[in-house]
Nucleic acid binder design. Structure first.
Lengths: 145, 145
DNA sequence: CGGTTACTTAGAATAGTTCTAATTCTCAGT
DNA sequence: ACTGAGAATTAGAACTATTCTAAGTAACCG
């Protein structure tokens, strides 16, 4: 099964980085691929552990740098539920997060455009939102997600 | 101008604490009042600085303990925008937060029940949300809030 | 008033992240 | 290929926010 991603994803990364005047490097590629391959909203430490399988010499500082860079280029979203480490998410479609309080797992919930409009409509005049983040907390039935 | 709060607020605190089997203490009262008096979503450090005007001997650990206790009793909400210190908010009505990216200020946005219903309606079956948090980011015109 | 439990305190410890300074890599122009 | 300039990576130190620990203090119950 050869997905079209195997050619377009590296291009996407290189293109988006170039848009910001940045280079595609092996470290950035590996970090990005790790996020794409298992979309469980890992922390920087978890990304570091996974990346080291492919690239044992990478440093934690570089993982932080790469994640920061990917966030700047809008290839990845940084998410913060409560206190605790930042988590990273390569899903670029508009979506909310559902945080299961029992397991700690996080699921993406797609958001229809019409809902986003309604949410934005609650802002009084004078407020100009460039983005909106929605976080649910609760419990999810086993095996959803 | 004597507001009815001057008698009911201490009672609310004592009552809610008692509901959880906890005591009302001078420290908890001062911390809670600091939050009520200036609702600008202060960090624990900022609360500490303000509380020390009234009670110079209080410790930072106690401020953290009191804030934690107030959150447990549902008298205060803890809010986390991105990485950085947790902020505290004594507004108990359903509301979103608007985070001004230029000034760093945070404003409460009241949420109508009907909107909350619509937001909850996007959850697929199998997801059972106990709370939802909405955070806007953008810029606010001067003097709103 | 004596025992028990809750609360507060100062300071040490920890977790997550950012900073610093040195090194290595990459690319553009020769 | 060679060189210089800028970009990226690295290890480790430093930093920030928070939690933990152990000891002291205060409130409640008999």
């Amino acid at each position: 099964m050869v997905s079209p991603d195997s050619t377009t994803t590296p291009d996407l990364l290189a293109r988006k980085l170039a848009d910001s005047g940045l280079r595609s490097t092996p470290q950035r590629e590996v970090v990005f691929n790790v996020l794409l391959n298992k979309r469980d909203h890992p922390t920087a430490d978890e990304v570091y552990a996974r990346v080291r399988h492919d690239m044992p010499t990478i440093s934690l500082a570089t993982v932080y740098n790469c994640l920061e860079t990917l966030v700047q280029c809008n290839l990845v979203r940084a998410v913060n539920f409560e206190r605790g480490p930042t988590r990273y998410c390569p899903n670029l479609r508009p979506h909310a997060h559902f945080h299961d309080e029992q397991t700690g797992a996080t699921y993406d919930i797609d958001l229809p455009a019409v809902l986003l409009e309604k949410v934005n409509a609650v802002l009084p005049s004078g407020y100009d939102a460039s983005s909106v983040e929605i976080i649910f907390r609760g419990k999810a039935a086993r095996s959803v997600g």
